[in-house]
């Protein structure tokens, strides 16, 4: 990430369930969407959009892939 690049305005923010940092979302999220906390790098899954909630995303399972 380029620290000097302008950051787009966020439309919503949510608290990271791992480190409590504020995660700014640049567009309206979808249920099931994956967001990453820039502070602790945790992968979080949006589990509700109204109200906005995230949970730690599930660990990779054996049959996951491309």
């Amino acid at each position: 990430m380029n620290p000097t690049a302008p950051t787009p305005p966020s439309v919503q923010s949510v608290e990271c369930t791992e480190c409590a940092a504020s995660i700014a979302l640049q567009r309206v999220p979808l249920c099931g969407e994956i967001v990453r906390c820039r502070d602790c790098q945790a992968e979080l899954e949006v589990t509700s959009v109204s109200p906005l909630r995230v949970e730690l995303a599930p660990e990779v399972e054996e049959d996951w892939g491309e």
Partner: peptide, 13 residues
Amino acid sequence: LHSRIRVEERLLL
């Protein structure tokens, strides 16, 4: 049909 919505799914949408 999806489970997680990654960047790829967003781009397809």
